[in-house]
């Protein structure tokens, strides 16, 4: 009988080969960018095959690295191809007039209750929705400042863990709330990236 781990590796290696073969054959820039996602998934499979708590913790950085490089590269692609025309006024339906405030508030409150990474994602979704529907004049500076300060808080929490481990509780709360603000601010920046005069 073949051990499970080797079987999983066989599949992961085969998927890697196929994904890279697809990338090798593709010549169009945008399609190449899309195919990189296929490769990211295979790389997560390698980590997931370990199957310990450590693997779960390592998947998070793996995922974030892939997502953030995708954001940077797609902006480069846009600039390189010269797609600068702002999009149209966009979708105008009734739910976008009435719902944003209450939905966004609910999502943000729930995100704060969850806290941490997933909380930041949930709360960020609420803020994205709000900005998409209600415009976003002059909020860049505020969001970026919040995100920058939360990054600093994260670093501070890290050093508390390393230098003053007896204050671990303070550090957990600090990093939990810092990552909440950080992920939320980053995601809501996406909500403001929809063109228009204030973009």
């Amino acid at each position: 009988m073949i051990p499970e781990y080797s079987l999983g590796l066989l599949v992961a290696f085969a998927a890697t080969g196929i994904a890279f073969y697809a990338l090798m054959r593709e010549t169009d820039g945008l399609h190449r960018l899309l195919l990189t996602d296929l490769i990211e998934v295979a790389s997560l499979a390698f980590i997931a095959l370990i199957g310990t708590d450590l693997a779960e913790a390592l998947i998070l950085p793996g995922l974030v690295v892939g997502a953030s490089e995708l954001i940077a590269l797609s902006e480069i692609y846009r600039v390189k191809e010269g797609y600068t025309r702002p999009p149209d006024a966009g979708l105008r339906i009734e739910v976008m007039e009435s719902a944003p405030a209450i939905l966004a508030a609910l999502l943000v409150v729930y995100g704060i209750v969850l806290s941490g990474f997933s909380g930041g994602a949930v709360a960020g979704l609420g803020v994205i929705f709000y900005f998409l529907c209600c415009g976003h004049a002059e909020r860049f500076a505020l969001l970026e400042t919040a995100s920058g300060y939360s990054w600093v808080l994260w670093i501070v929490a890290f050093f508390i863990f390393m230098i003053l481990p007896q204050y671990w509780f303070f550090a957990v709360m600090l990093s939990g709330s810092a990552i909440l603000v950080k992920v939320m601010a980053k995601m809501s920046l996406i909500g403001t990236m929809r063109g228009g005069p204030n973009a």
Binding site: E69, I71, A72, S74, S147, W151, W154, L189
Partner: peptide, 16 residues
């Protein structure tokens, strides 16, 4: 690890 990871996110968003 997480410090480096958030720095990667920070750098990528700075570029974008």
């Amino acid at each position: 690890d997480t410090v480096v990871e958030t720095s990667i996110l920070f750098t990528a968003f700075a570029i974008a």
